[in-house]
C-alpha cells in the first residue's frame, strides 16, 4: 500500500517534470507579452517532429536529434516571433488570443499537410528500464527529471543575474517604464518567446521516446494540460509553475490509480476551476500582480 503510493508519487513527478518544462515557457511568455500562448503545445509538437525527422530521414543519433528538434523549433519561433508575437506587446488581450490560436492552427495543419495526419513511430531514446531504490523507470524518464531540474535552476539563475533575465522581469512588471529607461521591449519579448518555444520543443523531444507516437495534433493536449498549471502557479511566476506542475502530475497519478484512468484528465480542469474560484491570482502570490 505504502509502496504503491510512493511509486505513484514518483510517476507523478515524472509527468510533472514534463508539464513543468512546457509550462514554464508559457508562463514566461505570458509575463512579458500578457498573452496566453495557445500555440504553445504546437512548439512541443514541432520539436518532436524535428527530432523524428532527423532520426527517420537522416538516421542521426538521438542526442543530435534533440539539438535539431530544438534548433528547428527556435528558428520557426524567430519567424513567428517577428511576424506575430512582437505585435502583441501592448495590444488588447483578445488580439493575443486570436493571434496565437491562429498560429496554432497554421502550425498544426502545415505539419499534417507535409507529413500526413497519421501517427509516426518515434524510435530514438533510452527506453531500457532501470531499477532505482526499488522502482523501475525507463532511463529516459530519469533524463527527463534531471533535465527538468537543470532547466529550472538555469532559469532561476538567468532571471536573477543575467542582463536579459533582468530585462524580462522588468518588462513583465511595467512596459512603459522599461521603454523610458531604454529597455528594448520588443527585443525582450522576442527572446522570451524564442526561449519559451525552445523549452516546449525540448520537452517534446525528451518525452517522445516514452510516448512513442508522433502526430500533428499532439500539441493540443499539451496546451490544455499546461493552461491549468500556469494559472495555478500564478501567471508569470516561474517557481510557482514548477510546484503547480508537480502537484498536477502527482494528483493525476493518484487519481489514475485510486479513482480510475478515465478521470485523469478531469484533475487539471477541476483544479483550474477551484483555483479560479478561490485564488484567481494563483496559489503562491499573496495578491494579484496585474
Amino acid at each position: 500500500m505504502f509502496y504503491t503510493i510512493i511509486e505513484q508519487v514518483v510517476n507523478g513527478i515524472v509527468s510533472g517534470s514534463v508539464y513543468a518544462i512546457v509550462a514554464v515557457g508559457m508562463t514566461m511568455i505570458f509575463g512579458v507579452l500578457r498573452a496566453i500562448n495557445f500555440a504553445h503545445g504546437e512548439y512541443y509538437m514541432l520539436g518532436t517532429f524535428g527530432a523524428w525527422f532527423a532520426i527517420e530521414y537522416f538516421d542521426l543519433p538521438y542526442p543530435v536529434a534533440i539539438v535539431i528538434g530544438v534548433v528547428a523549433t527556435a528558428v520557426i519561433a524567430v519567424v513567428v516571433g517577428n511576424i506575430v508575437m512582437q505585435r502583441i506587446v501592448g495590444a488588447p488581450a483578445e488580439a493575443g488570443v486570436l493571434a496565437t490560436l491562429g498560429v496554432a492552427l497554421i502550425l498544426q495543419n502545415t505539419v499534417i499537410l507535409v507529413f500526413g495526419g497519421s501517427y509516426k513511430f518515434f524510435s530514438g531514446g533510452y527506453i531500457e528500464p532501470v531499477t532505482l531504490f526499488g522502482f523501475t523507470l525507463a532511463e529516459q524518464r530519469i533524463l527527463i527529471i534531471i533535465v527538468g531540474l537543470i532547466v529550472f535552476i538555469g532559469l532561476e539563475l538567468m532571471v536573477t543575474y543575467s542582463r536579459i533575465g533582468k530585462a524580462m522581469r522588468a518588462v513583465s512588471q511595467n512596459i512603459e517604464c522599461c521603454a523610458v529607461v531604454g529597455i528594448d521591449v520588443r527585443h525582450v519579448a522576442l527572446w522570451t518567446f524564442i526561449l519559451g518555444a525552445g523549452l516546449a520543443a525540448l520537452s517534446g523531444v525528451l518525452t517522445a521516446p516514452v510516448n512513442v507516437s508522433v502526430y500533428g495534433g499532439m500539441g493540443e493536449l499539451i496546451t490544455f494540460k499546461t493552461l491549468p498549471i500556469i494559472i495555478m502557479g500564478g501567471l508569470g511566476n516561474v517557481r510557482g509553475t514548477f510546484v503547480a506542475a508537480m502537484i498536477l502530475g502527482i494528483a493525476e497519478s493518484l487519481v489514475a490509480t485510486y479513482v480510475g484512468l478515465q478521470f485523469r484528465d478531469t484533475v487539471g480542469f477541476a483544479t483550474l476551476m477551484l483555483v479560479l474560484m478561490w485564488r484567481p491570482h494563483g496559489l503562491f502570490s499573496a495578491q494579484a500582480r496585474f
Partner: peptide, 18 residues
C-alpha cells in the same frame, strides 16, 4: 480492476503498476 483510457492518452504507468 477496470480502467478506460482517453484517446491520445500517453501515460499508463500508474494504471499498469496498479
Amino acid at each position: 480492476t477496470e480502467d478506460y483510457y482517453k484517446e491520445g492518452e500517453v501515460d499508463f504507468r500508474s494504471v499498469l503498476s496498479k
